[in-house]
Design a protein around this nucleic acid. Sequence first.
DNA 1: CAAGGTGTACCGGCTGGACGGTATATTCAC
DNA 2: GTGAATATACCGTCCAGCCGGTACACCTTG
Lengths: 189, 189
Amino acid sequence: MAELASNTISPARERILEAAERVVGDVGAARMTLDGVAQAAGVSKGGLLYHFPSKESLLGALAKRYVESMTDCVEQAKSGTGETDGRDLKACIVGILAQQPRAKIVGMGAALFAAAANDLTLLEVIRERIAQYTKQIESSDVDFARAAVVTLAIDGLMMRESLRISCFTEEQRERVVQQLLQIADEAYR
Amino acid sequence: MAELASNTISPARERILEAAERVVGDVGAARMTLDGVAQAAGVSKGGLLYHFPSKESLLGALAKRYVESMTDCVEQAKSGTGETDGRDLKACIVGILAQQPRAKIVGMGAALFAAAANDLTLLEVIRERIAQYTKQIESSDVDFARAAVVTLAIDGLMMRESLRISCFTEEQRERVVQQLLQIADEAYR
DNA sequence: CAAGGTGTACCGGCTGGACGGTATATTCAC
DNA sequence: GTGAATATACCGTCCAGCCGGTACACCTTG
């Protein structure tokens, strides 16, 4: 478990969020109920509602958590490889796709779809993040189109894996990641 | 119960499917109700239930329609550019991403997510299609990794647009498509 | 051809159950 | 004892699926 530097962290709160992700992955976004999440988290419904006053707030927290966790992964990979900032395209690839507990990313993707299924506006957080990133690669000296293709491919792979419709073998997946790294390199000519 | 052969095209049936896509796009997957779809299609709920005996069957039809429509787009683009088969990577790009009524793809993507939200198993159709396509690019003489990246980027862009979180300008999007075409070309060296 | 029969397409009300949310009770920490 | 954290019971709403009915287009058959 990584320690979260953000706001006050309640252990129960975290347990609920994790349980919610599990439930979504198991039964699908639309069939995720508050009772189900509470049961999976080992908490009563009232306890759940204490931490998240409404279903929407739970979904919102899930979406927010997704963005934060994603940024964490990239940040971690960036400091790990010692890349200068402005060149975090490769950190995205390594940080997101080569993550050790693969299930983490899959679960968070599923949570994202849950948020989307229940309320499209909950995706605003993601949209802002994408807008920010798009602007970043546009204003830097990197080849825009190549960099954009890399980010799109990352999204595509994540989506497939979250929806469990990815059909790559481990070896094929590794080759794809290597290819993405190469395209990212080419973008820095 | 009336079993409909998959080929029979009832005008009402088609109208319902289109309405369902519209509703999903408007209110989100989880808030899609049979009443809402029936109203949007200009039929009564009973009429809807006549064509689709259950909500699941409606969702299933939506997913199936998605796959079929996708194949149609590619097939159409392939015959349009006169490419030899085995080289339909570029046809995928042109057929799916450069589609004229953009809303069509967006709507179908939304429908796909609706199906996924209500029942993960409905995605089996998509999974099979992806498996088939993965095998195809693996066994052909095309550079597997490059081709895979192209398909992933297509998926990523489609997903972003279906979820309305894409932030590209028209001009940027065009450059991305051109870049994909170029990478597809490079894959055939 | 008329009268009754049969199948298709569609309608709209109903209901049982599920689900989100509230109100209230209880426990625990300080 | 005070307030945070958690549990239980309950309420109102919403919705999927069912059912009985209608309209109409066809057969039959006498």
